[in-house]
Design a binder for these strands. Structure first.
Length: 434
DNA sequence: TCTGGGGTCCTAGGACCC
DNA sequence: TCTGGGGTCCTAGGACCC
């Protein structure tokens, strides 16, 4: 086959993975942090990211913050600063795009680049192209990334994970065995604890074990996602690079854990109400509306009760949704059961501009609603998220035993909020100033 | 990892229809 | 009245990711 189309060529896919990304950004911004153990996540009470210096002392993601000084007393603990990390992220992807526009922003700290066919134009090997990308990111941003290079996304991911930090691992199409052999199956992207445990019963422990089974075995014992992984691991690229920037959501969720757990019906409902408000704020910010709301209650024993409701029309206004939420909540809530969290999910979101207004819609009422919420959103921007809240959420805002995230560090902010707080009785469209 | 928060995709089974 | 087969759509829930 002398001239196969470009699609027939083996792919060359780079996976770029930031090393302890959040902590590394902090170290890049604050030179005095360099070489020292740094941990982010102060606002959450658990470690979001730990620098390699901190990891060396046994601190990892998810460790409770109050355990950190016990492990390493001189750790620098900072709140997460997403704006800064996003900036680093943007610059990282911009550097990748100098090589090719086929860059997928998979998450804030990792991405793929398809460099297939670029050897000729650049007069260099794929390894060199990928290494240059790595060098540019490291020298220009002052952070390190690890790189995996191979012929499919899943293999490239194995590569970037293979050696960290600041690793470079190329997994060649004709000799992937040593890499697959050293990769436990649950280290493969897409294989979680459930699938790994199931596979272990079939005698499969490593990626190599998995890959060497034949197609019949895989299809009889596994489902579609695992078959796709199997192909990717064998070097057949089935997951495309998706270069489009992610611009919208199919769902928006808000959930909050409160300590201590509560069996107080009014308090738990207020938590739910607050989550609903927050979800709606985000939806409005993105111009999205929905008719479908899922809510869940999480018991102290981590049992979930989930229900779903449909609104009579699309909306991103919490007080309208409350009407649907109340009966759903009552159907879920069990007396004398301590709950530790509630959550709200807005699903099947569509852009506000695409909805069909019902003929029976009262334009005046709708316009008034839009004005009120525009004002609410503006107030929130100027004075903080919860200056204006639904009456039903009030218990969640005033009780001081709310989420951990609200407790530390926020005293002045909280006080400011207290004095400015309005209580709008929105179902009746009345505003009252407290 | 005695367990935080925000997402996406897949699948089995039921409802409904022909 | 009972029976079969097959398609589509929806829902609940599972699993996974960062």
């Amino acid at each position: 086959m002398p001239w196969g189309s470009l699609n027939d060529w083996p792919k060359a896919i780079v996976h770029v993975d930031g090393d302890a990304f959040f902590a590394a950004c902090e170290q890049a911004v604050h030179p005095e942090y360099r070489g020292r153990p740094v941990v982010t996540g102060k606002e959450r009470g658990i470690v979001s990211a730990a620098s390699y210096e901190a990891k060396a002392r046994g601190i990892s993601r998810g460790v409770a913050l109050h355990d950190v000084p016990k492990l390493c007393p001189d750790t620098i603990i900072v709140p997460s600063d997403y704006e800064t990390y996003s900036l680093f992220s943007k610059r990282m992807f911009a550097i990748m795009r100098r090589t090719t526009p086929l860059v997928e922003e998979y998450s804030i700290d990792e991405g793929f680049a398809d460099i297939t066919g670029l050897r000729g134009p650049t007069h260099s090997s794929y390894e060199t192209i990928a290494q240059k990308m790595q060098d540019a990111i490291c020298s220009e941003l002052g952070i390190t990334v690890s790189i995996g290079l191979s012929i499919s996304k899943v293999l490239a991911k194995i590569g970037s994970k293979y050696k960290k930090p600041h690793g470079f691992t190329s997994i060649p199409a004709d000799a992937p065995k040593p890499y697959l052999e050293k990769t436990p199956l649950d280290n493969v992207w897409g294989i979680g604890p459930q699938t790994a445990a199931y596979a272990a019963k079939l005698g499969i422990a490593t990626a190599l074990d998995f890959v060497t089974r034949d197609a019949v075995f895989i299809t009889t014992h596994f489902a579609k996602p695992q078959l796709e992984l199997w192909k990717e691991l064998r070097g057949e690229s089935v997951y495309p690079i998706v270069p489009e920037e992610k611009s919208t959501y199919t769902s928006i969720s808000k959930t909050r854990t409160f300590t201590p757990p509560s069996h107080d019906r009014a308090f738990v409902f207020a938590q739910l109400s607050k989550n609903l408000e927050n979800a709606c704020i985000k939806a409005r910010r993105h111009g999205l509306v929905t008719r479908r709301i899922t809510l869940f209650l999480k018991t102290q024993e981590f049992q979930y009760a989930t229900t779903e409701g449909t609104l009579s029309r699309h909306s991103a206004y919490p007080h309208e949704m409350m009407i649907a939420i109340r009966p759903l909540f009552d159907a879920c809530f069990r007396n004398n059961t301590p709950y530790r969290a509630t959550g709200v999910v807005l699903t099947d979101l569509i852009l506000d501009t695409t909805i069909q207004r019902s003929l029976f819609e009262l334009p005046i009422k709708l316009e008034r609603l839009q004005r009120i919420y525009a004002a609410v959103d503006t107030l929130a921007e100027q004075f903080g998220k919860h200056v204006v809240t639904l009456g039903s959420s009030l218990l969640a805002h005033t009780q001081h035993t709310t989420s951990r995230g609200d407790l530390p560090l926020r005293k002045t902010h909280r006080l400011k909020g207290e004095t400015k707080r309005l209580h709008l009785n929105l179902p009746l469209l009345l505003g009252t100033v407290r």
